[in-house]
Design a protein around this nucleic acid. Structure first.
Lengths: 359, 359
DNA sequence: ATTTAGCAGTCAACCAAAAAGAGTGCTAAA
DNA sequence: TTTAGCACTCTTTTTGGTTGACTGCTAAAT
C-alpha cells in the first residue's frame, strides 16, 4: 500500500483488468497459467506471477490461500470501477426493450391477483403463484406439420404476439397419408392463421372439413390441440415469495431448489399442470408429489384454486411447498382468500374491468 | 396395497396422523420411540413398530433406509388430506389481518418504483431493490430513556403507526446526571409525542431547551437521533428477484444466503446503509464489499441511485449482487433506468400523484 | 390373542488420516 | 528482463473406521 500515488504500469493494469474480468466471469481464483493461455497475456506465467505478487503487495489482489490463484481485493474492485471499467453503451434495441418493460401497465384484475399472491405467500410462508389465462390475446401466425408415420405427426405453431414456437405431437386413431398432413397445414394457414381462440367456431371448422375431403376427421382432433396450445400460450403465471422456500430443509439442497426455480421460469410445465384441469371446477385442488405433476417437483405439493367472478374463471391462485406442508393452514388460507377476492371484485370493480386490456 | 378397501383401524389412523404431523413439524423421519414419548401414543415402541410396518406394507409410509424412521408416502399424505386433516378455522383476528393486507392500495409512485425494480432485476440478473422514504407518515408515540453512565444513554422510541420499537445509543461529548436523562424523557413526551418529522422546528426545540435549564445542549443531540430514526422507520424497502442470487456460487452457501435474506427482511440495516448517505447527491453510488456496509453483506456489492422528480428525491433504486458483479452492465442499467423513470414521471403523472396517500 | 422387553443387524452420519491436485515462490539459466 | 523448472504449501477428495439411531424379530408377559 506504499505506492498509493504511483501510477500502475500499463502491464499491471492489463493484468489486473484481466484478473478481475476473468474472476467476474468464472467466480474462481485466477491463476497465472490461465491468464497466459486464456486471457492472451503475452508473457510467460512466471512473469505474470511476479506482477501478480506485486499487485498483491499493492493491495489490489488477494490470495485465498497459498496454493490458490488470485482474487481481486475490495481495493482492486474499487480501482476497476473507478478507472478500468469502460462504460457499456446499451444498444438501441436494448434501450427499447427496457422502455417497453417499464411502460407495461397492469389491469385491475392483475393487480388484485398480484396482491392476493403476495398475501397468500406471506400468510402461509410458502411460495405462492397466480395464474391468469388470457387466451383471447393469442393468435397463431403460421402452422407447419411434420409427418412422422401414418398415425403420428407433429404440429408446429408459431404465435404472432410473442416469438414463441410451440410443437404438439398428435397421435391419430386412424391412418393418414403424408399428403393429408401436408394438405392440413395448407388449410390451417388458410383458415386459422391470425384467428383468436374465441373466433374458432363450427363454421370455420366445417369450412376446413370441406377443404379436406380426403380426411375431414383430422380437423376436430387438430383443433383440440390448437385450443390447448392457445390456452397455454396465453396463460401468465407469476410467483411471490420464492425465497421463503429456502428455510425448509428439503430445499437446502441448492440443486433441487435450482431445478424448482428453473421450472418456475419455464412456466409452461406448471401452466400445463394447472390448466389441463377441468376449468369449470371450482374446488380447491391438491397435488401431492408426483401426482399429475411435473417431474421436477416430485417432492413438492401444489395446492390451487380457481378464482371466479360472475361464474367466469378469471385466474387461479396457488401455493407451492414441500409435501410436508401445513395442509390445514394452506387450505383454509386459499379458501378464505378466494372468498375475499370474490367480494372485493364484486364490490369494487367498475363494470368494464373484466375486459382484456391491450398493451 | 392389497387391502385398499379395508378401513384402517383407529389405532393405525392415530399413528399415521401422528407420524404425518410430526413429520410436517420436524421435517425428519419419525421413529417409534419419538411417537411413544413425544406424541403420547399409549403403546410401547414395539407395538408402534409393528403398526408402522403394516402401514408401510399398505403403502402409507416409507423408509428412507433401513435404520431410519418412517416418512409419509404420497399415498399417506393423500389419505391425510382426504380423511385425517381437520379444517383449520381462522380466528376473526387472522381473517381481519388477511382482509387488511388484501385491500392495501399502492400509490402511483410506488407502482413505478416496483415496476422499475422488476425491470432492473430482470435486465441485470441480480437482485434489485427500491427504497421509498416517507418519513412524514411516522410519529413517535412515546419516548423512554435509560441512563448508562455520565456520557452514554439509550433512547427508546415507540412508533405510533406500527408496533415498532427503536432504540438508539446516544454518546455525549459532556457529562450529564441521571436526573437530566430522566427529565429529558419527560420533556420529549411532553413536546414531541405524536409530532411528525416535518413539524419538528426551531420553536419546538427552543421550548424543550427552556424546559431543561440544567442541560439545554442535550436537545440538539437528541433531536438529531430522533430525526434519523424517523427516517429509518418511514423508509420502505422492497426487493425483486431475490432468487436470482441462487445461481451465483458465492450464494450457494445456504447459510450466507439465509443471512443475506434475513438482512433483507430486517430492512433496517440496509435502509441505514442507503439512507445515511447524503440525500441530495444524485450520482450512482457503488458500495463494494465492506465499504460502509452492513457486516452481513461483506462480500456483496450494492449499487444504487436516487431517483428525482422536479428536484425532489422520490426514492432510490439499486442492485445487490456478488462483488464480482458485471459493473459495466449494472451501472449502465441503473443510469438508463433512472433517466427513463424521470421521463415517465414527467410525462405521465397527474400533478397530485406526488402527494402521500393515506392507507 | 395381544402387547412388550430385549437384542442383533443395518445403514447414514461423522471424523481423522492419507492421497491427489493446483498454483505459487524462488532460483538459475537464457 | 524474461523464462523454465522444481520444491513447497494448502485445499480438495478419498478412504476407512467408529458411532448412533432405529428397525425387525423372538421370546416372555399380560
Amino acid at each position: 500500500m506504499d505506492f498509493d500515488t504511483t501510477e500502475l504500469s500499463e502491464r499491471k493494469k492489463l493484468i489486473l483488468k484481466s484478473i478481475i474480468e476473468a474472476h467476474i466471469k468464472l467466480g474462481e481464483p485466477v491463476g497465472s497459467k490461465y491468464l497466459m493461455q486464456e486471457a492472451n497475456i503475452p508473457y510467460s506465467s512466471a512473469t505474470i506471477r511476479n506482477e501478480m505478487a506485486e499487485l498483491e503487495q499493492l493491495g489490489y489482489l488477494e490470495q485465498p490461500h497459498t496454493s490458490a490463484g488470485r482474487v481481486p481485493s475490495e481495493l482492486g474492485y474499487r480501482f476497476y470501477v473507478d478507472s478500468l471499467v469502460q462504460q457499456y453503451d446499451m444498444t438501441t434495441k436494448e434501450a427499447a426493450e427496457l422502455n417497453k418493460m417499464l411502460s407495461v401497465k397492469m389491469s385491475e384484475i392483475d393487480k388484485i391477483l398480484e396482491n392476493a399472491t403476495k398475501v397468500a405467500s406471506a400468510i402461509t410462508n410458502y411460495t405462492a403463484l397466480s395464474l391468469r389465462p388470457r387466451p383471447s390475446s393469442i393468435t397463431i401466425r403460421r402452422y407447419e406439420t411434420v409427418y412422422l408415420d401414418s398415425r403420428n405427426f407433429v404440429l408446429v405453431m408459431i404465435a404472432s404476439t410473442q416469438d414463441t414456437v410451440k410443437t404438439k405431437n398428435v397421435k391419430l386413431p386412424f391412418d393418414v397419408t403424408k399428403e393429408d398432413i401436408a394438405k392440413l397445414s395448407e388449410v390451417l394457414n388458410g383458415v386459422l392463421s391470425g384467428v383468436g381462440i374465441d373466433n374458432i367456431n363450427i363454421s370455420l371448422m366445417m369450412r376446413m372439413e370441406n377443404e379436406m375431403p380426403d380426411c375431414p376427421e383430422l380437423v376436430g382432433i387438430v383443433v383440440k390441440s390448437i385450443y390447448e396450445t392457445m390456452n397455454e400460450l396465453g396463460a401468465e403465471i407469476k410467483f411471490e415469495g420464492v425465497n421463503r422456500l429456502l428455510q425448509y430443509p428439503e430445499y437446502k439442497d441448492i440443486d433441487k431448489l435450482q431445478k424448482m426455480l428453473s421450472a418456475f421460469e419455464d412456466k409452461n410445465d406448471i401452466v400445463k399442470a394447472v390448466s389441463t384441469i377441468d376449468q369449470s371446477d371450482d374446488e380447491t385442488k391438491v397435488f401431492i408429489g408426483s401426482e399429475n405433476m411435473v417431474k421436477i417437483m416430485d417432492d413438492s405439493t401444489l395446492i390451487y384454486k380457481n378464482l371466479k367472478l360472475n361464474g367466469k374463471t378469471i385466474g387461479a391462485i396457488g401455493i407451492i411447498g414441500p409435501c410436508r406442508m401445513d395442509y390445514s393452514k394452506v387450505l383454509s388460507t386459499i379458501d378464505k382468500l378466494s372468498d375475499e377476492i370474490n367480494h372485493l371484485c364484486e364490490n369494487n370493480l367498475v363494470p368494464g374491468a373484466l375486459r382484456e386490456d391491450k398493451d
